[in-house]
Each structure stands twice: as structure tokens, then as C-alpha cells.
Design a protein around this nucleic acid. Sequence first.
DNA 1: CTGAATCCATAATGATACTG
DNA 2: CAGTATCATTATGGATTCAG
Lengths: 124, 124
Amino acid sequence: MAKARHSRFDCNPGCSVEAAIGLIDGKWKSIVLWHLLGGTMRFNEIRRTMLNCTPRMLTKQLRELEEDGLIVRKVYAQVPPKVEYSLSELGRSMEPILSALKRWGDANIGLYGKPQGHDPREAT
Amino acid sequence: MAKARHSRFDCNPGCSVEAAIGLIDGKWKSIVLWHLLGGTMRFNEIRRTMLNCTPRMLTKQLRELEEDGLIVRKVYAQVPPKVEYSLSELGRSMEPILSALKRWGDANIGLYGKPQGHDPREAT
DNA sequence: CTGAATCCATAATGATACTG
DNA sequence: CAGTATCATTATGGATTCAG
């Protein structure tokens, strides 16, 4: 959780909705988490799932997710570099939220052809 | 739904997670929706639940939610003005998401004393 | 009461190029 | 491969004032 990057608890102390949403806002966070539900992934592997995300942005989002304790970053000391990202326990506990988002999206905006193409549960 | 304010479907066509999250990001949207789960509310009534939200911001968020078809804005032609906001069917369908957020927040960040103080379900 | 108008500060995101 | 660095742009949020 590091230092409080989120000064967004100004709704009121009990507003946990705000707290929760604060961790998965940002343009790509929820997507990353969703993909990681399917298992460990490497940097470029994640990138390939969202080609419009620049490495700069991806790095930043990953770092924040890591700070918030939602994902785990594992670096292999080798050349070429290898870094793996996976969900922490806390991150995995967001599964209900992510699933709810997915279901809602599929039901209400899934107008773009078949909803999936990459259901994490059927990924490696 | 108006014109596509959300050009955030760049993950991939099936990425409904992104689509869904795109509708409730912003600093206050999820909070507003959460509160409206408890029933119709007026402008300042909503404001009082998040004192750090300026009228400008609240207006903007409400307009966007309206554009996206999540809430309904009802204006009474009278003086002083009276405007009521309530969830649309679509907005109400987000209840699972909002509940998931709330539950997660309560479980993982509810370190600020008793979680509620305003459970919409027990509001008027 | 429910906003709109204006101005401003900062944060978020993006493009591009480069590196160990 | 997994990032950094730099620059530019845009989006977001806020303060304040005004109005029907």
C-alpha cells in the first residue's frame, strides 16, 4: 500500500465504494487485473492484449497496482530480462468485482461481436 | 448513450471490462450511483453526501451519467427549482458491480470505523 | 435551489526515441 | 525483453463568481 497515493477518501470515512474504485480506475488497471486472473503474465504479454497502451503507461499502471498490493512483480536475474506479473491474494479477491464488470459489459455493451476472445479462465 | 464520449474501447472489441469501468470511473460517479441505489435524490442532497465535490464537478458527473443512460434527470418547472435524479433501469443493473465494490472496500479498506452511515438500502 | 461561466493547477495520457 | 527519458497534449479537478 506504500504511501497514500489515494487522497480520494473524501466522500466520507465509510465510503468503501470510493476506496475500491480508486484502486482500479486508470485507463488500464482493470484490464490488467482481468487478464491476470488467467494466470501469470510477462510484460510484453500483457502489452499485446492492449496494443494502444504504451510501455510507459503500462509500467505506471503496473507499478501502482503493485504499490496497492494487488499484483506481484517477480524479476528473474537473467539476460534477456524476464519479469512476471501475477495477482496477489488481495488482487485475486477482486475477482467478484472484475467478474461483475465483465458480465455487465457483456450484457450491456457487448455489441462488438462475441464478448470474449480471451476469457482468462481459459487462458494458460 | 449520446455520442461516443468513450473512446476507450481500445483494448479489443470484446473487452467489456473496459467498457464497463469506463462508465463509472471519474472521481464521483460510482459514489453517486451507489447513493442513488437508495432512491431518488435531489442535487444538493447528493452534494451533501460528498462535501468535497464542487457543484461544477457534480453537475458534470451527473450529466455524463445521464448521457450514458445510467441515471434519469427530472426537472420540476417551479420556483425554486427542483431537480431529481434517479437510476434508470440500466443504472440499476449495475447494482452487482456497486455491491461488489462496496463489499470489497468494506472487507479490505474498511479501516475507518463502521463501514456505513449511509447504506442506501436503508435510506428513504 | 440548481446550476452555468470563467480561470487555473495539476494529473493523466500519449508519441517518440533510447537503453541495459 | 522490459523498461526509461523527454516532450507535448489533454483531461480532470478545483476556486470563485454569477444567475434564473
